[in-house]
Simulated scan of single mutants.
Amino acid sequence: MKETLIDVRAWRQFVAVAEELHFGRAAIRLHMTQPPLTQAIAQMERSLGVVLFDRTRRRVALTPAGEALLPDVRDFLERAQALPVRARAAAAGEVGRVRLAFVSTIGFERLPEWVRDFRVLCPQVALELVEATGDVQRAMFARGELDAGLVLHSPGAAPPELARLPVAEEPLVLALAERHPLAQAPRLDLAAVLAEPLVIFPRRIVPSLHDAIFALYHAAGRVPVVAQEAIQMQTIVNLVWGGLGVAWVPESVTQFRREGVVYRAGDAFAAKAQSKAGATPPLPVCETSLVWPAGLNNPALARFVDFVRERSAAA
């Protein structure tokens, strides 16, 4: 059976008559004459195949069907009235959805603050969060499953096919077990550190940063001895605690306070290993960037990008 659509004006007329229970008063309220209103209600009943009002010369009353319909029609009209405002809010990025992936390092401190403050600023934008490494994020972008991502990389090595906003730069620090002999040294010799077994993430996760760490070893004339690979930074730190080796991790990982693991920053090294050319190899740094498909038309995403840009500049 084909359903008949009834326009918003007719539903408003129905509500007016239902609330006034008088066609004359309802017509005055609607700024119209009574005969067209009477005809409109009769046409609505014919279209629905349902009698909505009992009419006598003395009274007008809602039928059970009319009473059942009234709350839904009121809700429908309220929603219809809000549609222009919602449309303008959506165009301004105040309403919508942002599917955001992130790497664990940004999730230790900055991301929770951003999510909290952005929800206060734009409470009608839904942030859908998923933790994912850079390689997983690129695959999700290719499938259209993400609006934006926070990725880790070496400076300037963000995915070139995506628009990019740098949000943080931080040095790598050394994670080692508290019981490790080097952990007790007041100053660390980089050459001794580079001789230790290494716990590191697979190259496919963050190729640029993996290569930067290996370059540190090669510049000092050493080949890294990889004891174990692990994807998540928390797992890497736990493996360090277990005595499998040392690890170079972003400074933000120090927020993960694993008992039995200590972190040593660059200023803890007494003397850096010399490269074959005699120069001192620098300790690597890493960047975190917000990335998204260029040209993507999502006002809510644009609002989120502007928000992150302001927060990053302030930081």
Results as ranks from 00 to 15, higher is better:
L172C: 05
E109R: 14
P36C: 01
E131D: 01
I28C: 00
V291Q: 00
V246R: 01
A314N: 04
V136Y: 09
R303M: 10
R116M: 11
P202I: 07
V73C: 03
V249D: 08
N298F: 05
V223E: 13
T4D: 09
D54H: 15
A87C: 03
L30Y: 06
F108D: 00
F14G: 00
L127S: 04
P166F: 07
A300M: 11
V115I: 15
P71W: 06
L111F: 10
V151G: 02
V167D: 03
A142W: 06
A220L: 00
A294E: 14
R59H: 12
V193I: 13
V98E: 10
R74N: 11
H210R: 04
L100N: 09
T133S: 14
A61Y: 05
T38F: 13
Q13N: 03
L121E: 15
L5E: 15
G260T: 10
Q274C: 10
V308C: 09
H210Q: 02
R222S: 05
E145R: 15
Q81P: 01
A300R: 04
M233A: 12
R79N: 06
L176E: 04
V98F: 12
A61L: 15
L174Q: 02
Q39E: 14
C286Y: 05
L150K: 05
A40Y: 04
V17Y: 03
A42W: 09
V285Y: 09
P282T: 05
T235Y: 01
A273I: 05
G134A: 09
L296F: 06
L165G: 09
Q39A: 12
V206Y: 03
P159E: 11
A16W: 00
D72R: 10
E109I: 13
N298W: 07
E131Y: 00
Q43S: 13
G278H: 10
P224T: 08
F269Q: 02
F76N: 00
R309Y: 07
Q39W: 10
W241L: 15
A268E: 07
D189N: 15
A273T: 08
E109D: 14
V291A: 00
L209E: 11
P160C: 08
L283P: 05
G144M: 02
V15G: 08
A126G: 04
L216F: 02
L290E: 09
A61H: 11
I6R: 10
A65T: 07
G243V: 06
L121T: 13
K2L: 10
F53E: 00
